[in-house]
Design a protein around this nucleic acid. Structure first.
Lengths: 219, 219
DNA sequence: CCTCGACGATGAGGACACGCATCCGGCGAT
DNA sequence: ATCGCCGGATGCGTGTCCTCATCGTCGAGG
């Protein structure tokens, strides 16, 4: 199993790396959030420390989730329920509080990875009403393969909806996933971007407004 | 989500059941290992207490795994690493130590089940007398697929009843779930919205008034 | 039959959510 | 240095929805 350790305490990272290598895993180590985002490719599991020096761990988690579907086990010193719930909601698969018990960690990595749809059906492609959204390639094409070019934020916004085609997504949920919670819910920026996305779609009504709740990409 | 709680401490089981029901889950309770093996059918998640009176919890877990692929979250008082590792190796998907923090439990259930690609068929859809209520998509359709558009409050109200089709729901319960507990029970806003919902339904009598208690959505 | 409490219906008004035009600062490319 | 694009912020218009107040109805019990 190819594991990525994101941890800036060297002694902890070494201990983890050794234990993992001893059990036959292939380990890659980084000590910052930005590196995590750069090096996550081809990794099958991520161990993420929330207490990184170079920024908010939750932010790293959120961004990681936008680009990778690999299981993430959060490993942190923060034991409060708030942080736990927040991390899990942001897409973490497990949450372990330091000090880490190595055998447990290994068992949990097992537990999390054995659930993975081995050779996952890469349905990173969402198709609906002639609209084609390829989440992996980050491309969107309309009918008769006309390419639609979206900006980063626009794509992120559409991607959140696309991952849950046919089901309603709350406004807050989108805000969290696209902007992170350090964002004023009162801001109208969100609406502006949504307007843009709709304008670029061949069929604007594909994104349905659910007043008082959020939005839905029609299936 | 259809949850099975295997727990022989009644107070704990009740607390869990209430919390889960309040968040829209369908809960089934048993208090012994043998019952767990009998009643696991059609359940999508299992919460398993290891400290059952009628036998070894690990045995229950092992046998459960032989007959069901549903995610299992172990909930127990045993905090030692040995037990944790053993449970996870036996196929548990998560392992929580009592006392349980409810919000965390809910988040972990989410985390574990969102990985499941197979939990699709029962898509939170309630159907009764030609009425179709899709709680995930937040859509309601009558006979011959005529869409019925409800406002946020109206939908919330109907959803509370829909989650418990065929069973009576007290007025107070609905108030709590739709408005939150900081709401005057004397307010008639509730009745107004109920009227609206009924007016929009093809068959108003689908919502039966139980005078002096509450309401019921007919099955 | 009368009363009383619980529920049903309706209209008005203020609040609110959403869509959108517009401005501004930042940043990379030509 | 300049231009164009992107993302965030702001303000307003508009339509909708929530609530309240009011009155009507219904059922149960004395």
């Amino acid at each position: 199993m190819r594991v990525l350790i994101v941890e800036d305490d060297d002694s902890v990272a070494s201990a983890l790396a050794d234990a993992l290598r001893a059990t036959g895993h292939d380990v890659d180590r980084v000590d910052s959030g930005v590196d995590a985002l750069l090096r996550h490719h081809d990794r099958e599991v991520v161990l993420l420390d929330l207490g990184l020096r170079d920024g908010d761990g939750f932010e790293v988690l959120r961004k990681l989730r936008q680009v990778s579907r690999a299981p993430v086990l959060v490993v942190t010193a923060r034991s409060d329920e708030r942080s736990t719930v927040r991390a899990l909601h942001l897409g973490a698969d497990d949450y372990l509080v330091k000090p880490i018990r190595l055998r447990e960690l290994l068992a949990r990595i097992d537990a999390v990875t054995r659930r993975q749809p081995t050779a996952s059906p890469p349905d990173d492609v969402v198709a609906t009403h002639g609209l084609l959204i390829d989440l992996a390639a980050r491309t969107v094409t309309g009918a008769d393969d006309t390419p639609i070019s979206l900006t980063a934020k626009e794509f992120a916004l559409l991607a959140v909806l696309a991952r849950r085609v046919g089901t309603a997504v709350s406004r807050q949920q989108i805000l969290d996933e696209v902007w992170g919670d350090a964002f004023a819910a009162a801001s109208r920026s969100f609406d502006v971007h949504l307007t843009q996305v709709r304008a670029k779609l061949p069929v604007p009504e594909l994104i349905t407004t659910i007043r008082g709740f959020g939005y839905r990409l029609e299936a």
